[in-house]
Amino acid sequence: MNRRTLLRALGAGLATTLLGRPAGADAAPLRIGLTPVFLDDQTAFLNEWRDYLAARLGRPVVFVQRSSYREIVDEVMAHRLDLAWVCGYPFVREQARMRLLAVPLYLGRPLYRSYLIVSGDDGVSASLDDLEGRIFAFSDPNSNSGHLYTLYQLQQRGENPERFFRRTFFTWSHRRVVEAVAVGMADGGAVDGYVWDTLSRIHPEITGQTRVVARSETFGFPPLVASVSLSQADFDAAQSVLMEMPRDEVGARLLHKLNLDGFVEGDVALFDDIAEMARATGRL
């Protein structure tokens, strides 16, 4: 960390501290909803990140986790959450009622892929077609990589999951899709490529029991969105803190743990492909 980045970080912190302190509202925490678009089950890491954000924002930060994307999205729309890290699919669906705050950079780009995985024992399956009549795990109905993409592919074949697969189920997180396939509960699963890659770094023993059969084309990375009710000042402060993360030591270390390179403001057009697939499957 050089002096310039330090000064900038301090300046940003000072600015948000000053700006984010309208009379009577200084103690109100910033409520951020999290979904399993990343490995959200690392409590120690989350505490560290929360404290980091709180220090940078000069106000308390609360992370809110729910059992499904739906609940988080609903809370954003109900203005009970200020910010949320959601999937691109709910974002394109509810674009009108949320603002794009930032898009994470993965491998230098704000993009990721969906992986089709099968059990490590299955040395034969080479594509989705080979999983016909089998048991398939999705992550969340509102996930792009863990649901919509596979639906879209089936729709392109003139199929639907109920017919094509023997049985499907949701695990409500990408990580657990990997686990379900690893223990043999499901023969195949649709999973966020970024989560699978990150998990293979932290828990290779889990991903080692699975095999990636197919990788999708790239989609816009699950973005951080803001409730439309969030003040512009808070919006800017939060965006700035996120953008600055790679530029200070703690932020960089946290990003490394997230297996991300940083955040960009992003463009709604990044999610056009997802919107297209949602439209095609009649889910927009």
């Binding site: 795990a137 189920f169 949701f170 695990t171 409500w172 379900a180 509960m185």
Partner: peptide, 8 residues
């Protein structure tokens, strides 16, 4: 809820 994973 037919939530197999949670049951698991």
């Amino acid at each position: 809820h037919d939530d197999v994973w949670r049951a698991y």
